[in-house]
């Protein structure tokens, strides 16, 4: 992938910006992809970095609640599939950070900003996965919601992001099927299993309804993002696609949406109606005030810090840098520890 090269005159007051912008927007409107070496408005680049970074962050943070359940997965088949799924999420983060890097921001910096709480991650991973059924609901419904979003984004204007998303969508299809399979097993299982699943759905319904972001009435970024084909559908449109496809499947499994949502189908328009989520709460959660926001970031920080010696050592080994000789110090250090 070609690396980012700084492009001149990419800010609105720069000479020649307007003409370049017109040509750029015409290309995007034609459905042409933008590639790393191209001229692009600084704001386009910034918005994309922000978006891809949040997406990548969400993948590595999403690996935490599910990863914590790997030890307890209740059959060998579930265990294998869950490890593979969490592994895919780490793999997706790898692909996405790489796509963001082509816009000129190194991975180290992107990850550091997450750890420092300066970059966001998806609202859903600010909540704890309390039981095995939570893992099933995350794998089915949250991955379903994510696929709605990612399938759309894969048609977006930025080449490297779009390429990464095509592969991600392909892999998410396995996550979704596996998630559905796990939910069917619980929904057709014993009373304890059915209750466990319903509890998880009830607990997760709020974060799920918030997943696609604030309602169109409140979302500030949408208009420009859509003109630049960074985004192709509004938050509410995505939410409707998700509800249309998955609520009937949930009902079919005998699952209920908590009554306070007053979720109902408008037969005339085919739209699902519901009580609007509290978007102030959503904003607060993604800003780091969710039930387990702090633990998630703390965990990421610890993993990153604990891995530092490995990254440094392999770098040193590759660089052929002089290696300090083994000395009596070794014992001293060992004692201190």
């Amino acid at each position: 992938m070609v690396q980012f090269t700084p492009q001149p005159h990419d800010k609105p007051d720069d000479p020649g910006y307007e003409e370049r912008l017109v040509a750029f927007e015409a290309r995007v409107a034609r459905g042409d992809k933008v590639e790393p070496g191209d001229w692009m408005p600084l704001d386009y680049r910034k918005q994309l970095i922000r978006l891809i970074q949040v997406h990548a962050n969400s993948e590595i943070c999403g690996a935490l609640p599910e990863g914590a359940w790997i030890p307890h997965a209740p059959s060998l088949q579930r265990k294998l599939a869950l490890v593979a799924k969490v592994q895919d999420e780490v793999g997706h983060a790898q692909l996405l950070y790489r796509a963001a890097e082509t816009l000129g921001k190194p991975r180290e910096e992107l990850i550091q900003e997450l750890i420092d709480g300066k970059a966001k991650f998806s609202n859903v991973f600010h909540y704890p996965a309390e039981t095995w059924a939570d893992v099933c609901v995350i794998a089915w419904l949250i991955d379903a919601a994510a696929i709605v979003n990612q399938t759309m984004m894969a048609e977006g204007s930025y080449g490297p992001y779009s390429r990464a998303l095509k592969r991600i969508c392909y892999e998410e299809a396995f996550h979704l099927t596996h998630g559905y399979d796990m939910c069917i097993t619980l929904a057709t299982g014993t009373k304890m299993q059915r209750d466990m699943l319903q509890d998880a759905v009830s607990r997760w319904w709020k974060p799920i309804m918030m997943f696609h972001g604030p309602s169109d009435k409140e979302s500030k970024h949408t208009v420009q993002l859509m003109r630049w084909r960074i985004k192709l559908k509004t938050n509410d449109e995505q939410r409707q696609i998700f509800l249309k496809k998955y609520v009937p499947k949930m009902f079919n499994l005998g699952l209920k949406v908590p009554e306070e949502w007053d979720l109902r189908l408008d037969e005339e328009t085919g739209k699902w109606l519901y009580n609007e989520p509290d978007w102030a709460e959503f904003i607060s959660v993604v800003r780091g005030n969710g039930p387990v926001s702090e633990q998630r970031l703390r965990t990421r920080r610890l993993a990153h810090e604990h891995g530092l010696w490995v990254r440094e050592a392999l770098e040193a080994a590759a660089g052929g840098r002089p290696v300090p000789m083994p000395t009596a110090q070794r014992n001293r250090v060992a004692v201190e520890n």
């Binding site: 992938m1 910096e109 592969r167």
Partner: peptide
């Protein structure tokens, strides 16, 4: 801040003998 994310390598794979190597990522 030091970057400890190493060097980027582009990856090409060949699906079968006789097929071309294709870029798949990095």
């Amino acid at each position: 801040m030091s970057d400890t994310q190493w060097t980027v390598y582009e990856v090409f794979h060949q699906q079968a003998r006789g097929e071309p190597h294709v870029h798949v990522g990095s």
